[in-house]
Computed example of a mutant assay.
Amino acid sequence: MKLTVPTMLTLLRILLIPVLVLVFYLPFKWTNFAAAFIFAFASITDWLDGWIARRYNQYSAFGAFLDPVADKLMVAVALLLTVQKHPTVWMALWAAVIIGREIAVSALREWMAELGQRATVKVAGIGKIKTIVQMVALVCLLYQEPFAGINVFMVGEWLLAAAALLTLWSGLLYLRAAWPVLREDARS
């Protein structure tokens, strides 16, 4: 297995997960900034690895498998940390919607791939918008502190709610795209 630059960036993102957790729990005032910075950096590497793979044709089967795993792990851990620190009904609900949709869509993609229909459930534009909103929300929620008179945490809460709604919407689009195949399989 040859490691491409995009795959190395994806592996870096996975290695940053325990660093994020450790920094999040350190008892220093600067840890909010550091945790938000680590998550933001990881989010940028997510975009960068895809750009490099497309621009320089550095695709690999291992990278194609690992990239979505790294993304989902990083997001799930950031959501769990946020909910643990701010255990409200809404925060838990938004996190559950986002994590639940990721599991459901991953299972749907795997099942559709087994049926030879993977292209039916490819990533849509709404999914990319959802990802951007979700990443910005999590950076705000990890940062938590007011900045220039702006309640960054509240902005993060609203963006997380928007991300959860976009998550539901994109999940329904995936399901709608797969529905003809699901319905046909049920008739068999």
Rank of each mutant, 00 (worst) to 15 (best):
A92K: 05
L22R: 10
V139C: 11
T4W: 06
K2N: 11
A104C: 13
G100V: 09
K128M: 06
W51H: 13
L159A: 00
F62N: 02
L172W: 15
K29P: 10
N57I: 05
G171H: 01
K72Y: 10
I126P: 00
V139A: 04
Y25I: 06
I129M: 14
A113C: 06
R109I: 09
T7D: 02
V19I: 12
V89D: 12
I132S: 13
W111V: 10
L48E: 10
D67K: 07
P180S: 10
A124S: 13
L26A: 12
P27F: 08
A64W: 05
L12N: 06
T7M: 07
L81F: 01
S60F: 03
A96I: 09
L172N: 11
M112P: 04
P6C: 07
D67P: 04
T82V: 13
L16W: 05
L3Q: 09
N32H: 14
Y56F: 15
M8P: 01
T131Q: 04
T10W: 00
Y174R: 02
P180Q: 06
V136G: 01
R101G: 03
G149N: 07
L166G: 00
E184V: 06
V105G: 05
I129Q: 02
P6G: 04
A42M: 07
A61T: 15
I103T: 07
F24H: 06
I17Y: 07
F28S: 05
V155N: 01
T45R: 05
Y174L: 01
G171A: 10
W158T: 08
I126R: 05
L66G: 03
W47Y: 15
S170V: 13
L175D: 03
S188L: 14
K2C: 05
A34I: 01
W169N: 00
A104Y: 10
L108F: 10
A113L: 13
S106F: 12
K29A: 14
W111S: 09
V19M: 03
G149A: 08
M74C: 12
A161K: 03
A186K: 15
P27I: 06
V155A: 14
V75I: 15
A107Q: 10
A53E: 00
L3D: 03
R109W: 08
I14C: 05
Q58M: 14
V121R: 02
L173A: 14
A178Y: 01
I132A: 15
L81W: 01
T45G: 02
V77N: 07
F65K: 14
L9A: 03
M135W: 12
T4N: 09
L16D: 02
I52G: 07
M135C: 14
L172M: 13
A162C: 11
N151R: 08
G127N: 02
L73S: 12
A40H: 08
A113R: 14
A186L: 15
P68A: 09
A96K: 07
I38K: 00
L16K: 02
D185R: 15
F37E: 06
